[in-house]
Design a binder for these strands. Structure first.
Length: 499
RNA sequence: GGGUCGUUAGCUCAGCUGGUAGAGCACCGCACUUUUAAUGCGAUGGUCGUGCGUUCGAAUCGCACACGACCCA
């Protein structure tokens, strides 16, 4: 019973398989010798504005290839659209322009989704669409499965994520998102290289997962019989390079964090980290502002961006305020004194229904209040500075206020996009901070950092004054592509396995 | 983890207070040499997410589970 039904269900596939068998019998079914001489986007850009007459008096002969997306057969002639990576182009295929029998015996048996190569002359149709009058056409690859419905496309988000290739075939919007992603990454690379930054690659597998506070993925190296961790950040390796004399380095690569999935979190995500010697955090805020503004101009052609119905202007100077200032700003009923001591801040947190654990110091409580009441309201591009030492174990202590660090985070649309600071290059202070993290780990905080003795040794050799920053590429791309979910900007987002 | 909504033909979706399943597109056949969601005519295609229950009878009602989308922590 079930066998017959499966056959019925796959009727269309069965038909296409039998067509493929006919093609195999006729010769090479998957030829590789076709060469196009142009992509259709270039033709549209160059000849789209030419008149019908201009194209007739000065005929342009072209060879193009792509996937057949639509077809309208009208007896002895047909129109179809083919799509390549640059766009769509209409073909006019007439029986009498092809060898005897080819139109009826071969062309008409091809299917939407098949990949074809063709040659002909550019012309304008009666309604003015640039098209190719075909006099040679070949099937290059037979598609055995039908494409999704042409008008609505794929409505099921899950299919878009699980079968991204179908989404890319069907959705111009989706193709555009990933083109913009590529443009942004290229822009950042060129921006940093132009400023004497050196692109480097540091270990993805680390014996001690450092540079951030997050749960790591574990793996095992058989030959060495040792536990390894997928990195949660490249930070400590990049700073070793600063010690080594590479005074400006950056890395754009994946980080892995063993935490939940959400519209803003994927277990592997792409991070830009860069470090600049003889600089401090204000320099990086300026650099970030310039870079983000440059990206906007590069990919959108303007500094005003629209994200999920809200507009943000990257043209104006970005707002800057400290953690405490921002809390007071968004909580007008609070006064400075309410955030000045642990007791007062704990009371504020309690009123906000924030659970305060015994181990929390003033700084941690302030950050909890910040995250609950401020973060999601930081809509316009904003730098928040002066993060407490307690939550910034790798950042340099501020000279005037030892309670805070020379650190900033960058927010747009209520989302954290970047995190940077003047690096802690005092080896003894760093050793002390690691010891404190280990204490917290032993007290049950499984996100606290490990003690990285090798890194402390590197610092003991002397790291010049340095500022460093990390920018979440995925979140940045979301912003510039108006994507509501991180999955929309990841080609292959992590999903629960099917069955 | 909690809440809301969803899961019906290859795709996009209808299907009323329970009475044995429908459209458009795709596919197949016929006609058609400037169409573009081509058009006209005809045909094919469904264990209605899974399981259990209520009922004479379940796509429809109830419970559980799976998967997904969105919101919240």
């Amino acid at each position: 019973m079930s066998e017959i039904q499966i056959q019925d269900e796959q009727e269309q596939i069965r038909q296409r398989r039998s067509k493929l068998n006919e093609i195999r019998e006729r010769g090479i079914a998957f030829p590789t010798d076709f060469r196009r001489n142009v992509v259709v986007g270039e033709l549209l850009a160059e000849y789209g504005e030419k008149t019908k007459e201009e194209l007739e008096t000065d005929p342009i002969r072209v060879k193009v290839a792509g996937r057949m997306m639509t077809r309208r057969i009208m007896g002895k002639a047909s129109f179809c659209h083919i799509q390549d990576m640059s766009g769509k182009m209409q073909l006019y295929v007439a029986r009498d322009h092809l060898p005897e029998g080819f139109y009826n015996d071969q062309f008409k048996k091809w299917d939407i989704g098949d990949i074809i190569g063709t040659e002909g002359v550019l012309f304008k149709t009666n309604v003015g669409e640039l098209s190719i009058k075909v006099d040679d056409i070949r099937l290059l690859t037979k598609a055995l499965r039908p494409l999704p419905e042409k008008f609505h496309g794929i409505a099921d988000q899950e299919i878009k994520y699980r079968q991204r290739y179908l989404d890319l075939i069907m959705s111009e919007q989706s193709r555009k998102t990933f083109l913009i992603r590529s443009k942004i990454v290229t822009y950042i690379r060129e921006f940093l290289v132009a400023r004497q930054f050196l692109e480097v690659e540091t270990p993805m597998m680390q014996a001690i997962p450092g540079g951030a506070t997050a749960r790591p993925f574990k793996t095992h190296h058989n030959a060495l019989d040792m536990e390894l961790f997928l990195r949660i950040a490249p930070e400590l390796y990049l700073k070793r390079l600063i010690v080594g004399g590479f005074e400006r380095v950056f890395e754009i690569n994946r980080n892995f964090r063993n935490e939940g999935l959400s519209t803003r979190h994927n277990p592997e995500f792409t991070m830009l980290e860069f470090y600049q010697a003889y600089a401090e955090y204000h320099d990086l805020m300026d650099l970030t502002e310039e870079m983000v503004r440059g990206i906007a101009l590069e990919v959108l052609g303007q500094t005003l961006i629209t994200y999920q119905g809200e507009q943000y202007d990257f043209g104006k100077p970005f707002d800057r305020m400290t953690v405490v200032e921002s809390i007071l700003h968004f909580n007008p009923d609070l006064a400075v004194d309410d955030l000045a001591t642990r007791e007062a801040a704990a009371k504020v947190a309690e009123n906000l229904k924030i659970p305060v654990k015994d181990g929390y110091g003033l700084g941690k409580i302030q950050i909890e209040i910040f995250e609950k009441t401020v973060e999601h309201r930081l809509m316009n591009p904003t730098f928040i500075t002066a993060y407490p030492v307690e939550v910034s174990p790798l950042a340099r202590r501020n000279d005037d206020d030892p309670h805070v660090t020379d650190r900033f985070e960058f927010f747009v649309g209520g989302r954290e996009i970047a995190n940077g600071f003047t690096e802690l290059n005092d080896a003894e202070d760093q050793a002390e901070r690691f010891r404190k993290q280990v204490e917290e780990k032993e007290a049950g905080d499984d996100e606290a950092m490990h003690y990285d003795a090798d890194y402390v040794t590197a610092l003991e050799h002397g790291m010049p004054p340095t500022a460093g920053e990390g920018i979440g590429i995925d979140r940045l791309v979301m912003l510039f592509t108006d994507a509501p979910s991180i999955r929309d900007v990841l080609l292959f987002p992590h999903l629960r396995p099917k069955n």
